[in-house]
Each structure stands twice: as C-alpha cells, then as structure tokens.
Design a protein around this nucleic acid. Structure first.
Lengths: 146, 146
DNA sequence: CCTAGATACATAGTATGCTATTCTATTTGT
DNA sequence: ACAAATAGAATAGCATACTATGTATCTAGG
C-alpha cells in the first residue's frame, strides 16, 4: 500500500500544506478569519498600511489572487481601503481596529499550530524544514532554460 | 523586509507547494494533464482499476474532491468508468489506453521536477524533507483534544 | 419481506490559487 | 502637448480543495 507516493517530495509537500491549512482554518474560524488573511494581517500589522501590489509581493501571491482575498477581507471587515490622493490608480489598505485587536490572538494561533507540528521532533527541526523548503522553492522558482 | 514570514513553517510549506504545483502544471500541460491527475494515474497504473473511494483514500483527498477530479479526467479522456455489475452504487475507474501510454513520460516529468528541487543540496535532502513533512503532517492530522 | 443504517457517489456552495485580459491612471519620450 | 508605455487594480475563467448535504443502493435485523 502507498507505493512510491510517500517518497515523493511533491506529494508530501502538497499533503502537508493541506493539513496545515485545514488546522489553521479551524483555529481561525471562531475569529471570523481565514488562512489566506494571515500574510495580509501580519504585513499590515508589522509595517502599516500598504497597497494591493505591496501586499501581493509580500505574500508572494499574484495580484489577482490578492484582489480576491482583499475583497473577502473587506466583506469581513478586517480591512478597509482609502483611495490614494496623489495617485488615482491606487488605494491604501488599512487594518480595521477590530482586526488590530485580534492580532495577538492570531499570532498565538499561528505559533501554536506551527509548534504543534514539531512536537516530539528534534530541536531545530522547524528551522531545518524551513531551510530545505526555501532552497527547494528557490530551485524551482526559475523556470527551466528551454 | 520579509519579517518573520520566512521563519514560519506554515508559510514556507504553502509557498513551496504552490511552486511545485505550478512547475508540474507547466510540464504536464503539453500532455493535456494537470497536477491533480498524478496520484490517480500513478495509483491506477500501479495497482489497476479502482473505485472512486479507493482513489480518494490513496491520494489522501476527500471524496467530493476526487469526484470532481475524475470528472475532469473523464472529460480529458484519461480515465473511463465501468459500472460495477455486483454493486449498483459503484463504478470501476480505468485508465484509457492513451493515458497508459503517457505513464512513462509522466513519471519522468514528476521525477525531473522532484530532483530539480534538490539541485545543489546535500545528498539525502529529499529523504530528510519527506521525513520532516511526514512527521509534521502526522502531528497535525489528529485534531487537538478539546 | 421490509425498514434502519451504512456505503458509494453526486451536488452545492465556498475559499484559494493561477493565467489572461481589460480598464483606468500615470509617466515618459518626442 | 500628446502618443505610447507602464503601473495599479479589476474581471473572467478555470483548477483544486474543503464541508455539508442529497440520492441511490446495499445489507442486516426483526
């Protein structure tokens, strides 16, 4: 049973990404938040209001994806947008005060899940995993020379 | 720049899963295949025809997700279904002969991407990554006791 | 035999992500 | 000043995943 699947990095990365995201979704649901909101909340909380393009870069997702995420976050009253006076193309995204109050809880939830993942694993496992993933992702980020 | 994001396992797992999937999608597109087809193709190729429920278990995705994936695979003529004579509820999923012919190329594409991810990394990095992810996923697979 | 429960699959609704395209606003080069 | 290029954001269309629910069909207990 289970062939060579568990020997494929691609399969295990996909599987663990889904497991992480599901646990995060469950833990965030009582706060009315979703996992995709996290990078936006952390970025805005750490560095203040930002444009959509800046948020997309910092979360490393494409701009249209961020557009949809921000629409949901606006619907859920996590963020609001202020049109930029000097540049009519952009709007500056702000955290609502309600969202700002949630930040400590959100950080604690994210930390809990991240650390629970490494229960019973040797110290440094998390850093090691992050290092391996960072390098693997970097190797695959450049498209192959054709 | 880049705060504590790159120090979060959850963020890096999500990011690398997306990078892996995008590269896989690009490489499979010329064959008319998508990444989500891989676990189905490999399972059917390795162990022969199977039911939808068996395929969902082997890919570790939920049944409704597998139902949609199989619908797309049927549309793309990668699989076909044969109603089970003895049990009117099920259908047995088979690879088309066209799909069977593609299996070697698909394996080579998947292997290429998996190994390209570890270019320049120490030998054993892939196995180590898989081990860490397997244990992290196992830790998060049981919901927390409430 | 016939109903209660279990099993296999389908459907609905939503979230998250992508590419391709479009729209508008700003900037740049002549 | 104005046409062309660039930049910010929105939209369309699709893939992949989830939960919740519905619909058959099958199996067991009475």
């Amino acid at each position: 049973m289970g062939f060579e699947r568990y020997e494929s990095a691609g399969f295990m990365i996909n599987l663990s990404a889904r497991v992480f995201e599901r646990r995060m979704a469950e833990a965030l649901a009582p706060l009315g938040l979703s996992p995709a909101y996290l990078p936006v909340i952390f970025t805005l909380s750490a560095t203040g209001p930002a444009t959509q393009a800046e948020l997309a870069r910092s979360a490393e997702i494409e701009q249209p994806t961020m557009a949809l995420t921000l629409r949901r976050m606006e619907r859920d009253e996590i963020i609001y947008r202020v049109p930029d006076e000097t540049d009519g193309r952009r709007a500056i995204v702000h955290l609502t005060s309600r969202a700002e109050e949630l930040v400590p809880q959100v950080e604690s939830i994210a930390d809990d899940i991240n650390s629970r993942a490494f229960d019973g694993l040797p110290a440094g496992s998390s850093a090691q995993l992050i290092d391996l993933l960072t390098r693997a992702a970097a190797n695959l980020t450049q498209r192959p020379v054709e």
